[in-house]
Design a protein around this nucleic acid. Structure first.
Length: 422
RNA sequence: GUGGGCGUAGCUCAGUCGGUGGAGCACCGGGUUGUGGCCCCGGAGGCCGCGGGUUCAAGUCCCGUCGCUCACCCCA
């Protein structure tokens, strides 16, 4: 048996319906905040990710699906969306025109990681990115929009965590101080953190080892060393999102794994997902557009993990499965042919209709109609073909009436409009 | 990449001391010459993940391997 590739999931009808509902609500909310949808390629030149995410990050070093195409160009299945959005922004000259530019995109990402709960090799993100404005109001707006959306999904057991990662003016100095602090007592760090001192010292703040945790309590924090501009920016963001009944916490230990982030970083976590607890994360990346060859424009964005979000909504009624308005139970070849014609007439009027094409007893066909949750069943046999009238059974009520076959489709359409239509 | 748990019917899972593999749900048919749900009767469905070993005999014990899963790591 050929199985799906490791870490890649089939979305079956029940779950696909929930995903559609998620996307529909997200689109609706994003529209209110002025975000427009864009759709981007899944494949990009490898260089794009190496330059944006960072050469020495785990994502680029060991998690990307990278291969050479038939011309020998190195291509990569995107491990995240921001780099592609920025590339498209620059390439299509979307910076032209006045004001902030806001985009969202929804789709699959690929990372070669060991699968576990809430982590897959093909996973899906709902991404929002905004370009051109450095004002803290934009940071606040984005965070408020994210929380607005999560609230509309009915999520309450979530925590919003905010931090500032500084800027090229203040972060390098801090990073230097921290590295020196850690290097002085490197032998007390766990093996992972000994490696992190060289690769990503900020990550030590995130370590789960008790001894590492104790050590970093004495370490310098970025909060203390933010430059005045970064300090003001963070304070203003916090001030702006306060007063909307939103609870949040500032956590100096929140760090991001991607190199391009500057200043505001935030994450939304839950206790209900196991180890992979972040359902959304994002932040500012003021230097990225320029670093990728575009104009020197500030930007900010976030991503929602769609699998993780969907996992939190399994109990909700989001995404009801469709059911036919009419099921045609036909007995015999002649009736099946007539039923087939009726089926098509009804569908062309926009109603959902189904019938069974195999020779099964009326009882069996009724049973199928019941399981499909059909509203009505039309029973069609030789008798009905002769008289031109057929019984129409209302499944929920159990009542039955006689309908003329001539003009049946429009009659049903009128009834649908009255009973279930808009 | 490292570690733990688990692989038995479509699904969820029993299977004792090694002795001819089961249940519930789902599916098919019947109980109604042409009427669903509830109920009753019957039926179909298994390389017990795969390979090797021990044994008179292996779903069961041992080794290997593959898969799934959870955690580390990383992150959405």
């Amino acid at each position: 048996m050929i199985q799906a590739v490791r870490g890649m999931k089939d979305l079956l009808p029940t779950e696909a319906a929930r995903w559609q509902a998620i996307e529909q609500l997200a689109r609706q909310v994003f529209q209110c905040y002025g975000f427009q949808e864009i759709r981007l390629p899944l494949l990009e030149r490898t260089e794009l990710f190496a330059r944006s995410i960072g050469e020495s990050t785990d994502i680029v070093e060991k998690e990307m699906y990278t291969f050479n195409d038939r011309h020998g160009d190195s291509l990569t299945l995107r491990p995240e969306a921001t780099a592609s959005v920025v590339r498209a922004f620059i390439e299509n000259h979307l910076d032209q025109g006045a004001g902030v530019k806001k985009y969202f995109t929804i789709g699959p990402m690929f990372r070669y990681e060991r699968p576990q709960k809430g982590r897959y090799r093909q996973f899906h993100q709902i991404n929002c990115e905004a370009f051109g404005v450095d004002a803290p109001e934009l940071d606040a707006e984005l965070i408020l929009m994210l929380m607005d959306l999560l609230e509309k999904f009915g999520l309450d057991q979530v925590r919003l965590i905010i931090n500032s990662l500084g800027c090229p003016g203040c972060r390098p100095g801090f990073k230097q101080d921290l590295t020196e602090f850690l290097a002085r007592q490197v032998e007390h760090l766990c093996p992972d953190c000994q490696r992190r001192v060289a690769t990503n010292p900020l990550r030590v703040f995130d370590c789960k080892s008790k001894t590492c945790q104790e050590m970093v309590t004495a370490a310098p924090t970025l909060q203390e060393q933010l430059c005045p501009d970064c300090r003001r920016h963070l304070d203003r963001v916090l001030e702006l999102i306060s007063g909307f009944g939103l609870s949040f916490e500032v956590n100096p230990r929140l760090v991001r794994g991607l190199d391009y982030y500057t200043r505001t970083a935030f994450e939304v976590v839950t206790t209900q997902l196991g180890a992979q607890d972040a359902i959304a994360g994002g932040g500012r990346y003021n230097g990225l557009v320029k670093a990728l060859g575009g104009p020197d424009l500030p930007a900010i964005g976030f991503a929602i993990g769609q699998e993780r979000l969907a996992a939190l909504l399994t109990d909700s009624r989001l995404g009801s499965e469709p059911h036919p308005f009419l099921f045609i139970a036909a007995l015999g070849a002649a009736a099946r042919y007539r039923g087939f014609q009726l089926l098509q007439e009804i569908r062309k009027l926009g109603l959902a209709a189904e019938m069974e094409f195999t020779d099964r007893s009326l009882k069996a066909q009724m049973s199928i109609a019941d399981r499909r949750k059909a509203t009505y069943v039309l029973i069609l046999g030789d008798r009905e073909l002769a008289t031109g009238e057929a019984p129409l059974r209302h499944m929920a009520g159990g009542g039955q009436e006689t309908m003329a076959l001539a003009g049946l489709a429009p009659a049903l359409a009128r009834r649908f409009a009255a009973e279930e239509g808009t």
